[in-house]
């Protein structure tokens, strides 16, 4: 017995009336398990042609307008600078930049050039690629609180030139930039952050 079966038997209509007579327990339905068993398939069922299927690879391509705030952020990266913005109303300096403050909903008016260094807020040692492929050498994602911002304001990036075992929350790190000629105005213009 499991919970699902019991409910089935115990459920009864209190009254007949506007709500219809149940189609409850009658004939073969009574024996049907409440949890629909379904038809689980294995990978082999597909390979061996036991099951029909079709595939489709959509071409879902985009070009997202960066707008003022992110456009300028990317331009800063190209120039080797990390830009943030300051909300005067909330006295809060944040990165990535935005055109308005999500807390007080006022436009943000002030740009701030930040140091390209910070502190590891949290990190991971990841052996799995985005598409679930296993990695021999781990990637080291981290949230890095950027110096000059308000407390616990950071960005997502990667760590490098570090033994994974040595990484600690609170560790000071510094951006390693691509050469100026290779920078295109992208978050990847910073290769990674390394311990200072």
């Amino acid at each position: 017995m499991n919970g699902l079966e019991t409910t089935r038997k115990e459920t009864k209509l209190k009254k007949k009336g506007s709500v219809p007579q149940a189609n409850v327990p009658s004939g073969p339905l009574l024996k049907r398990k409440m949890a629909f068993e379904g038809t689980p398939l294995s990978g082999k069922d597909f390979e061996q042609g036991k099951v029909l299927f079709t595939t489709y690879k959509p071409k879902l391509a985009y070009a997202w307008d960066t707008g003022r705030a992110i456009g300028r952020y990317l331009q800063g990266l190209k120039e080797g600078r990390l830009l943030g913005v300051r909300c005067r109303h909330c006295d809060r300096t944040v990165i990535p930049p935005r055109a308005f403050c999500e807390r007080c909903f006022r436009p943000i008016e002030e740009w701030v050039q930040l140091q390209d260094r910070g502190v590891i807020n949290t990190f991971s040692i990841s052996y799995v690629r985005w598409d679930a492929v296993r990695l021999e050498k781990p990637t080291l994602p981290a949230v890095i609180d950027i110096e000059g911002t308000s407390p616990r304001v950071g960005i997502l990036h990667l760590l490098g030139e570090v033994d994974p075992k040595q990484i600690k929350v609170g560790m000071k790190v510094k951006a390693v930039w691509k050469a100026a000629s290779e920078r295109i105005g992208a978050i990847t213009d910073i290769q990674y952050f390394k311990p200072e």
């Binding site: 985009y62 070009a63 105005g185």
Partner: peptide, 10 residues
């Protein structure tokens, strides 16, 4: 400026 990208899946 725009930033290019896709939803890569099948």
């Amino acid at each position: 400026r725009s930033w290019p990208g896709e939803i890569p899946l099948e």
